[in-house]
């Protein structure tokens, strides 16, 4: 657990370095102090929270985001074609989607991935299902096939 916070401290300081762009002793000291402060707050918040989330993006997560971006491109093309079509061929749906993912992190990732791809939108997140609004029945059918869900479960967060 201590390792986890040290990692966060380093990541925060690197983030600060990238944003700052000034490398003089005084300014660097400010950076160290702010990174330390944020980590201290985080430790305190985790004590209240009781279930700190540890998310280490690995190769699997990177692979998933690559795949997700490709899905985003595909669905964007689909929605753009519908918008420019003079007849506006949309059939909005609002349906229940049963989910297999259970951990909060997986559910967050799944719901956000669904929303990120245009054409499908998560409106409610419940214990064992989402409510999905979709521009077309195909969008929900695609989700029911469960490829995205299977990929998220393979990351195993």
């Amino acid at each position: 657990m201590r390792m986890h916070y040290i990692l966060i401290l380093i990541v925060l300081f690197v983030f600060w370095l990238l944003l700052s762009g000034h490398y003089v002793a005084l300014i660097l000291a400010f950076g160290v102090i702010s990174a330390l402060l944020v980590t201290y707050f985080l430790v305190r918040m985790d004590k209240v929270d009781k279930e700190p989330v540890i998310f280490r993006p690995g190769f699997a997560a990177l692979h998933y985001f690559g795949w997700l971006m490709w899905q985003v491109v595909l669905s964007n093309i689909d929605v753009a074609r519908r918008i420019w079509n003079p007849r506006l061929p949309i059939r909005p749906q609002w349906q229940r989607l049963d989910i297999k993912v259970s951990t909060p992190m997986e559910k967050t990732l799944y719901a956000n991935s669904i929303t990120l791809t245009p054409g499908t939108l998560t409106t409610n997140v419940k214990k064992d299902h989402f409510m999905i609004h979709s521009l077309d029945p195909d969008g929900i059918e695609e989700l029911r096939k469960g490829e995205m869900e299977a990929r998220i479960r393979r990351i195993g967060v």
């Binding site: 985003v72 491109v73 964007n76 929605v79 753009a80 918008i83 420019w84 506006l88 949309i90 909005p92 609002w94 929303t115 990120l116 791809t117 245009p118 054409g119 939108l121 409106t123 609004h133 521009l135």
Partner: peptide, 22 residues
């Protein structure tokens, strides 16, 4: 354009998504 053409709020969300995700 999609935000103007779509018939209700929820479908407009999809149109707005196009500008923000891609």
């Amino acid at each position: 354009v999609g935000m103007l053409r779509m018939p209700d709020f929820f479908s407009r969300v999809h149109a707005a998504g196009v500008t923000e995700t891609l």
